[in-house]
């Protein structure tokens, strides 16, 4: 097992954001965490990448306990993250952003740089443009490309589809699949459960800081509860406060 999150609890002040989350990621997998707003998906990812301290529990990566390791050292250990939303450096050019991705490396990164431009030809076109002036989709591509520059063993992706047009979401997801095929393990946090479940091998469903379900992604796609809550389906299931209850049973 490459990454193992063992029963972590995280608090924002006195408020518990995570109440005992356990997640396992095996080498070569795409694992996704799905759930509604405030379920703790982003917090889980931030805790794994070291931006948030944990109250209790352990994170084991590559056989090493990294619970207390500062975030910048986790990058060297092999955890790469594309932060949520526009986690790029807006004032730097696209090229400088990518070079920042290789900040922690001591070895030559020209191969990864070429690969990033090859995966995202759009970035090559905008090489010398200030990253903050690009569209949301381009910024997302940059964030992923930049995370790959560190040559991570596990790539942590936080809502890559957020605020993007459906066509662009398709494109980003197919690139994530390609990245995985080339050997990078992916841990994906998504609100777009439909897309995420189609892409991932396994999935965890989070609700108010707890894992309520974990199964192979394909199974969850057919799971009536998950359909009702996250996929806009599930006639006959009473899930108060969820949109799309009246939606037909069939999936797109």
């Amino acid at each position: 097992m490459l990454l193992e999150v063992k029963d972590i609890h995280v608090h924002y002040g006195k408020i518990a954001a995570l109440k005992g989350i356990s997640v396992e990621v095996n080498e070569g997998e795409i694992v996704t965490l799905i759930g509604a707003n405030g379920a703790g998906k982003t917090t889980t990812l931030k805790t794994i990448s070291g931006l948030r301290g944990l109250t209790s529990g352990r994170i084991i990566f590559d056989g090493q306990d990294i619970s207390k390791m500062p975030g910048h050292k986790r990058v060297v250990a092999g955890l790469g993250q594309a932060p949520e939303g526009r986690g790029i450096f807006p004032g730097m050019t696209v090229h400088d952003n990518l070079l920042m991705g290789a900040y922690a490396r001591t070895t030559n990164s020209s191969k990864e740089l070429a690969e990033a431009y090859e995966l995202f030809p759009r970035l090559a076109e905008r090489r010398d443009q200030a990253a903050g002036t690009m569209s949301g989709g381009e910024q997302q591509m940059l964030a992923i490309g930049r995370a790959l520059m560190a040559k991570p063993k596990v790539l942590l992706l936080d809502e890559p589809s957020m605020g993007l047009a459906p066509l662009l979401v398709q494109q980003i997801f197919s690139i994530i699949e390609e990245i995985n095929r080339r050997g990078t393990t992916v841990l994906l946090v998504e609100q777009n459960a439909q897309q995420a479940l189609k892409l991932a091998h396994r999935a965890y469903v989070l609700e108010t800081g707890k894992v309520v379900k974990s199964a192979p992604a394909a199974e969850l796609l057919d799971d009536p509860d998950v359909q009702a809550a996250y996929l806009g389906g599930g006639m006959g299931h009473e899930v108060p406060g969820q949109a799309g209850q009246a939606a037909p049973e069939e999936r797109a």
Binding site: K46, S49, G50, L51, V75, P83, G87, P90, G91, A104
Partner: peptide
Amino acid sequence: GRSWAAIREDEDAAEVMGVPTF
């Protein structure tokens, strides 16, 4: 200087790029 610029523009992103921000 580049580390400072990264911290200034997005501290969390800088940290996950491996910049010892603190």
